[in-house]
Amino acid sequence: MEIVFLNALANGILLGGVLALLAFGLNLIFGVVKVIHMAYGQCVMLGMYVIYTLKVIYGVPLLVASAVSVVIMGVWGTLLHLLVIRPLLGAERLNQLLALAGLIVVFENLAHVIWGADLRGVRVDLPIVSLGNVFLKTSNLLAFGGALVVLGILYGVLHKTYVGLAIRAVAQDRECATLMGINPGRIYLLTLTIGGALTGLIAAFFSPIYSVHPHFGGSFTLMAFIIVVLGGMGNLAGGFIGAFIIGVVTSFAAVITSTEVAEIVALTIFILVVLVRPQGLLGARRAR
């Protein structure tokens, strides 16, 4: 039994790494543009289909396919900003949410029409690594390591470069940032492009682990929400910690009972956090 729990813990942490990247993208968009991207997981799903198409149908090497997916999803994010999010910037919060929820319908059916409802997977044979009694899949380890590296780079960009400073400035106070000569429209565009490229990257990490189908994104969108709310909306550090909490908790719940119960547990945590501590674990209490 101990061994089972140890494995659950290890795999939960590995899952947490990738979830942290997913939550980072959602959080960045929320923090800067103040829009909840309801179809974020669905973008990851589209990215996975791009990789599948390139790798399986055109025989492109996986690494190249992944790189292409990052570029395509980055462009996709830019288009999304120009066509949907920018026209909605002045609208009510609820309308923004509903319009982006409408995109879920568009993306899932787009995938359904183009690729059909079957499971599509990129077949990669990687060995299993064992540390004593703990067994880890190489693909999970790679995804975890890759996610941490990317998070590190993004942290560096946000804190050490001029553009990063501008992004953080807009996130903190849009009007003051405008007065300092930052063009918030361009920062929004950049944020959505980065967010889009991230979905392509996450798709690259997911491809060797999961097979994709049109409704693949739904549960990951919900997972990302849960993490973002748990850590505090717009709080990047909180999202990082929240990802590992949710990764480990769902991993344990799945081992003890079933995957459905694991999801129910995660969603219940979400509801309780929204009710009792809407500012998240690390957020400061603010008057509403």
């Binding site: 919060r93 129910i264 969603l267 219940t268 009710l275």
Partner: peptide
């Protein structure tokens, strides 16, 4: 607890999914 607007929408979204699960 004063849950309103988009928070209310997200919370109910989770509720629907819980019942389905």
């Amino acid at each position: 607890f004063g849950v309103m607007g988009d928070y209310f929408a997200l919370l109910t979204l989770a509720l629907g999914e819980i019942v389905s699960l």
